[in-house]
């Protein structure tokens, strides 16, 4: 850095050169040796972070080869020898795998269906509030669950749904028998999605609220002149105005579709609710970490991320073609 000034005079003099093709000089790269000599201190700051990325991000990516290799716990990180598609065939013929696959699709689909539109609705409602203090209060309160540990959320859910919890108190009050919600497979999806709504919807409004303030006031004025009522203003001005944000978040949501709240499912499910609650990620967790079938679990994991990647790419392409918004 200290030599930046002395080595960089061309930047200043380039203008006076005039005709001698400045664009070329721009495209011309300094050789590595020179760059290293000049910026070695900067590069030295990048050494530890690069080591971090290499060891804790890229090694695990390569580590996925154990999906196609025989792996022994405590042995070679990348397995012992190739076994081809043995583990892939194994899970494709595993009935439990297809059960958890279906569960993943259903749970992910429900979450997307409910948790994607609700922040938009809430943001629109907040946007209509006139009192700034009331608006800020509602925002502050609704953001709060986002800051809680997922363990705390799960614990609160269990307190509410316990046999002596408030939900069952309500049921008893209307003359209904208490329901052991946490133990019943039929209730798991409802519980999961509701807790997801409770935790994420408030926080999800932030980007929409920001996008809403950016909608051009003149458009509303013009719509009013054309005789549009409030509903039509919302429909024809507000919603198109926040569409890029909606599309971006939709694509991102679709990208995490397959990974459905792994930690939350792990906390909320139990063997009694496996029929509806067990998803790919929890299944591979039990297969790998609990039962030590690492290769088998890695194969499933690879399959899961492959689907996830395909989903994002597809959603991104469709979005770009259809409405001109895309992540990249």
């Amino acid at each position: 850095m200290s030599t930046t000034k002395t080595l960089d005079p061309p930047t200043g003099t380039r203008g006076s050169d005039g005709a001698t093709s400045p664009p070329r000089t721009r495209g011309h790269r300094r050789p590595w040796r020179k760059a290293l000599r000049r910026d070695w201190q900067l590069y030295s700051l990048a050494v530890l972070p690069l080591l971090f990325f290499l060891v804790f991000r890229y090694l695990p990516m390569i580590g996925n080869v154990i999906a196609f290799r025989r792996f022994q716990p405590g042995g070679n990180l990348f397995g012992e020898y190739w076994v081809g598609l043995r583990y892939v065939k194994m899970f494709l013929t595993d009935d439990t795998f297809w059960d958890v696959f279906t569960n993943t699709l259903i749970l992910g689909g429900l979450t997307l269906l409910v948790c994607f539109p609700l922040p938009i609705v809430l943001a629109l409602l907040l946007n209509e509030v006139r009192s700034r203090r009331w608006k800020r209060f509602v925002q502050s309160v609704s953001y709060l669950p986002h800051f809680l540990s997922i363990v705390v959320v799960a614990a609160i859910v269990m307190q509410m749904l316990a046999l002596d919890g408030v939900v069952n108190q309500g049921l008893r009050a209307v003359g209904h028998d208490a329901i052991p919600f946490i133990q019943e497979a039929g209730w798991f999806r409802t519980i999961y999605v509701s807790s997801e709504v409770w935790q994420t919807v408030g926080w999800g409004t932030i980007l929409y609220l920001a996008a809403l303030t950016a909608v051009d006031e003149n458009l509303y004025e013009a719509a009013r002149v054309d005789g549009a009522g409030r509903w039509r203003q919302t429909w024809h001005v507000t919603l198109p105005g926040i569409r890029p944000t909606m599309m971006t978040l939709l694509i991102l949501n679709i990208g995490t579709f397959m990974a459905v709240g792994f930690e939350k499912v792990l906390l909320l499910y139990n063997p009694l609710t496996y029929p509806t609650a067990d998803v790919i990620s929890t299944y591979l967790f039990r297969m790998g970490v609990v039962s030590n079938s690492f290769s088998y679990a890695a194969a499933i994991g690879l399959f899961e991320s492959l689907i996830g990647l395909t989903l994002v790419l597809t959603a991104n392409t469709i979005s770009r073609r259809a409405v001109g918004t895309s992540l990249w």
Binding site: G63, N64, G288
Partner: peptide
């Protein structure tokens, strides 16, 4: 790149 591609649970655990 690591925002879009991750090693996944099992390889991380093994590592």
């Amino acid at each position: 790149v690591t925002m879009f591609f991750t090693g996944g649970l099992i390889p991380n655990y093994v590592l």
